[in-house]
Every structure is written in structure tokens, then in C-alpha cells.
Amino acid sequence: MTNRSVILLGGPDSGKSNYIGRLWPALDAKAGLVIATSQPRDIGYVLDTADHLFQGRFAPRTEHNEERRDFEVPVALCDGTHASSIVIPDISGELWQTAVRESEITEDWMDELKAARGALLFIRVGSDQDVRPLDWVTSRKLLAKVGQDDDRDKIPTQVMICELVRYLELTMGSRDDSKPRLSVIVAAWDRVDPKTFDEGPRAYLGREYPLIAGRLLDTTKLDVSYFGLSVVGGDLTDDPEFREQYLENSLDQHGWVAINDPKTGLWSKDRDLTRPIAWAIGA
């Protein structure tokens, strides 16, 4: 059995923890592409995160400076082949932010990046932690009225993600064996309108984060696939009706991944939340 680690990257509030919380029940249900072969030794952390979802709330943001927490689970493909163990280290978005600002990262994370089998990159629709690029090109007068604000010194989200992609290229992308895979996940995909849904996450990135879209199109060191993600299939915070209906049913019946059919080019919802992991580990 091999150990394959899958790294989760993304800024603060990009949906990483909620995905892990939802992923364990999905692996355990043994209905997807990737299934859990046995119960992992330590599931305290995922249970804590899933608890928020069970109670009809999204998990709060991962606190800064917390101990690193790995979620390690023995998995196999649904046909029983490719038995391996995936290690998903959950890193707080702040850690990635600091890594970009200082271009420094601790030794053990550097090792993780170098050894990683694949990676999941998270970007969330409508996150309040999103830093937009400076926009005086279009609205200088407006900016002059607003004056100084705290966001001015922050690194725009798209610049940060581009740097993270560069780090991936420098670490796991520089290995000689097969091209590592990157699942780009746009979280809270249930919030976009039907037209955006049909165009897919890639077109969405092209419009909202042109630097990220261009960068991912240009990379030759990573094999990129795009997914839209909704961990529970709706908004637990602002939609009381949905929340009520959500609490009535079990978690297994909620949540989907938007995937692209390569033949027709159409985007559709798929109940199997393990698909981004399946892609990243090369299945």
C-alpha cells in the first residue's frame, strides 16, 4: 500500500475545512469513485468539522497558529484497486498567505509539497476574505473618495493563488515522474446563476480572476481539472428554508460536484463528492 498525500491549498475562507468535513462521510458511504477501506485511526478532527455541518452550520474559519492536523485515511477505488492511503493536511489559509508574503514555508510543509501526489486548490464564490486587485484603472475618482483602507496593503487573492501555483510547480511539479494533478475547486458553486453554471468554473475564473485563469492555462507542469463544489447543496447561513429542509435529511443526500462531460462539454451536478480527490490521486 502506498502513501499518497493530497495537499489542500487556498486562502482564508476558501472552503477547505468544510470540504474535509464533508469528505469523510462521503468516503465512508462507499458510494463514490474513492471509498474508505477502513476507519482511520484519528477522525476527531473531521468529526469536529462535520459536526458543524450536521447541525446545519458551516464550519467556522480555521484558527490561526493552530497545530497542523492531518486527516489520514486508507482508501481504494470503488473496484477495490489502487489501495492507498491518502493524507490530507489541512493548512489554515493564513499559513498560505504568510508563505506568499515571505516566500518562506516551514521545513515539514516543504517536504509535504515535494512528496505530494496531487493538490486541491480552493477558491470560494463570494468570500468576504477575497481581496480584489486595485481598481483605479476604472474607478480612480471613486477610490479618491474612499481614501485609505486596510485592504491596500493586502496581496490580492489572485496574485496569492498564482504564487501558490508557482510553488506547486517548483515542488511537486519538478519531479521527473508523471505530471502531478491539480484539482481546481470553486466552492459555493450553488450560489452562481444558471448561466455561469453552464459556462463552468473555468470561465468564471477567467472573468473574476483573470490572472489565475491565464496562469492555469499556461502551466505545463501540472495537469489541471476544474470542479464546482457545493458541500451541502445550498446556503445554510442565509437560506432558512433550505436549512430546514437540509436538517430533515441525512448529510449523504446533500452536496454535489459540478463536473464537465468531455464529450458534450456540458456541466452537470454529480453526487459523488470524492471526484476531485479521485482526479488528484490519478485515478
Binding site: V137, T138, C162, L211, G214
Partner: peptide, 16 residues
């Protein structure tokens, strides 16, 4: 800034 807003007519960002 034009490329970071996808506003450079006829061009898009690829890498830097």
C-alpha cells in the same frame, strides 16, 4: 492592472 482585470484589449495574462 489592465491584465489583472482582463481589460487589455486582445490580450490576456499567461504568466509572470
Amino acid at each position: 492592472l489592465l491584465v489583472s482585470h482582463a481589460k487589455l484589449e486582445g490580450w490576456s495574462f499567461a504568466d509572470s
